[in-house]
Nucleic acid binder design. Structure first.
Length: 243
DNA sequence: CCAGACGTTGTT
DNA sequence: GTCTGG
DNA sequence: CCAGACGTTGTT
DNA sequence: GTCTGG
């Protein structure tokens, strides 16, 4: 699945998303080494005027009817296989798909001495884009003028053969040519169905590297650069994972 | 009709 | 809000 | 995802 | 064991 990831940050001048039309980057986003559920993280979504924007949203999707924000603990991921039907996700799936920006995600290996975290990245630790959904939520008895809380969820699908040693579910990683299509609000339900089929077979980004990292990062409060560094001499070489 | 869930993962 | 179970 | 709490009362 | 917070 995807319960923790990292983000290298973005400046106003960043060209990582240059292929997303009409994208205005209004502010910079700092590097994050250990993004956990409930925290803010940048996503890309379509705007009303046909463009796109980057905003930091809270991880853990809150449907508008959620009674309180603890509901988001159960919705950090959405299964690609069932997301069109699930009450908590179907509206967001139909109308509010987004790109979740990362540069790799963590998975935990169960060992005799406890849980060992690993980082999965794309070659060159380049931008890894997850298929996401977003929602807008306002607490039931909030005073007027209370700004809504905007939240997101990350789609998951079956892990591929060579990723399955650590886990049977992986986040849906979108290929750059699908980024804009995924956010397109005007596509038909038929087209959307076709897209989600493709997304399920996913990992359009076909090659990942993996390496073990410090167990200190298992604590969600740990936010230091070495959270993403290879343990000891393992290095980032020889860790290729063809998916 | 009302009440209660609405979710994913992993483990046994 | 909407669906399911009782 | 993992880590940490899981409770009440009264006092500062 | 299970829930909440990060």
């Amino acid at each position: 699945m995807c319960g923790r990831f990292r983000y290298r940050g973005m400046t106003i001048e960043s060209d990582e998303l240059k292929h997303v039309p009409g994208l205005e980057i209004r502010k910079a986003f700092p590097p994050r080494f250990n993004i956990a559920p409930t925290q803010l993280s940048p996503i890309v979504r379509a705007t009303k005027d046909g463009g796109h924007e980057v905003e930091a949203l809270r991880w853990g999707l809150l449907p508008f009817w959620a009674k309180d924000q603890s509901f988001g603990a159960k919705t950090i991921n959405a299964r690609a296989e069932t997301v069109p039907e699930k009450p908590a996700f179907r509206n967001a799936f139909r109308f509010r798909r987004c790109l979740v920006l990362s540069h790799g995600f963590f998975e935990w290996e169960t060992t005799p001495t406890g849980k060992q975290p690993w980082l999965f990245t794309l070659p060159g630790e380049s931008l890894m884009v997850f298929a996401g959904l977003w929602e807008s939520w306002t607490p039931k008895d909030a005073p007027p003028e209370t700004p809504p809380t905007e939240t997101f969820s990350i789609l998951t699908t079956t892990a591929t053969t060579r990723g399955a040693w650590i886990h049977d579910r992986f986040p849906v990683v979108l290929a750059p040519e699908d980024w804009v299509h995924w956010m397109d609000d005007s596509i038909s339900p038929q087209e959307l169905e076709r897209l989600v089929q493709k997304v399920q077979t996913g990992h359009a980004a076909t090659e990942m590297n993996q390496w073990p990292v410090t167990r200190k990062m298992s604590n969600a409060r740990y936010e230091a650069p070495d959270a993403v560094e290879p343990l000891s001499t393992q290095g980032k070489e020889g860790t290729d994972l063809l998916l």
